[in-house]
Design a protein around this nucleic acid. Sequence first.
DNA 1: CGTTGTGAAATAATTCACAGCA
DNA 2: TGCTGTGAATTATTTCACAACG
Lengths: 223, 223
Amino acid sequence: MTILRSPAGIPDATVARLPLYLRALDELAERGTDVCSSEHLATAAGVNSAIVRKDLSHLGSYGTRGVGYDVRFLAGHIATVVGQTQPWPVVIVGAGHLGSALAAYQGFGARGVKVAAVVDADPDLVGTVVGGHEVRSIDTLSDVIEHGEVSLAIIATPPAAAQSVADALVAAGITSILNFAPTALQVPDAVDLRQVDVAAELQILGYHAHRRQAEPAEEAVLS
Amino acid sequence: MTILRSPAGIPDATVARLPLYLRALDELAERGTDVCSSEHLATAAGVNSAIVRKDLSHLGSYGTRGVGYDVRFLAGHIATVVGQTQPWPVVIVGAGHLGSALAAYQGFGARGVKVAAVVDADPDLVGTVVGGHEVRSIDTLSDVIEHGEVSLAIIATPPAAAQSVADALVAAGITSILNFAPTALQVPDAVDLRQVDVAAELQILGYHAHRRQAEPAEEAVLS
DNA sequence: CGTTGTGAAATAATTCACAGCA
DNA sequence: TGCTGTGAATTATTTCACAACG
């Protein structure tokens, strides 16, 4: 009796890659590929094959030795593990350039994300429509969250407003926040917070570019 | 004779946090804080103090025992290490919702990033102005890169176009790419590639949210 | 004193290498 | 034969804990 266990302790690094595998598998399925090897999936996801096999081993054994993985079956299984059997409703706080861009993003649907509402504090923006969503007042935030069964929130406000928005979200019962504002938010331990900082990403690239031009020949050291 | 060494082997994890420290230090400086402890900086950056001290130790010793770090001096030093003594010119490829939002983003200046140009393949967008930048044809990409001394590029195109854009960027001599398109790009080893995938971030949050609601009481296990 | 800077210990993630199986 | 699944080895990162020092 094999138990289809919902595997308890999946390493964080693995969890962070599962969405990449899912995306890669969906692409492969679209192209009509029914079966793929760990090598194949690794290329499609942009990682190496050893890590693919190790990661998938945390979910249980779903491959066939000498053959590979059933693309659709594996995609379905990963979707189940990440809780993506039905779309996650998400509220976007902030209808500025970035918030609007996210609200208009067509790619969410295929990735199990559904924009439930867009809210903003600016009265001039309330009532306008971005990406097919009418912008509501931020005062309706708790209503939106409770009635919409929303459990994920995106903060796309200026940094100065981000902390109070986070506080309001937490007060309304949100436990998962994706923050685009370049500021370190203070939230309770029980709240899961992830950060996207575009400028920081560019600075990291800048560090390496800087080093490349400073020390052109370091191959010897790297052996 | 203390050598102001440009420290050779800074761990990747540390490099990824330097921009956060820089941001936090700039905020502290604005508020008139002259000196801060590792604890203080840790809170402002959203990490813990042990990691701050360990990270900073990789850059050399710039603190004063019993006192802390000079905010401005440390900020300047980190800026030097990440090569941010003068702004990095960046080209944004793709003037859709996201590309426009990035082009209009006001926060880049303070973080050492300067938008040098915005290009797009769509003739209808060429000539329009987004965030103060006239959108140029993607055919001018290599000119833009060579004349603007651009070394960083942001890909904000639909996934289907991303690989050919990446190829063009690499051909034009770009060695640092920040990719927003949800697809695994194939680039030479010498090219530094970072990925931002919003849907993937949400799926990671979804995984944890999913587990939380599936297993409400796991405190005992975590001891 | 109070806080840094850092070895040493603990933990986490990746890579290797190959037995085991379809 | 070819590819998975996985222990073992390696490497990276975080955390601890405290001596050193302004």
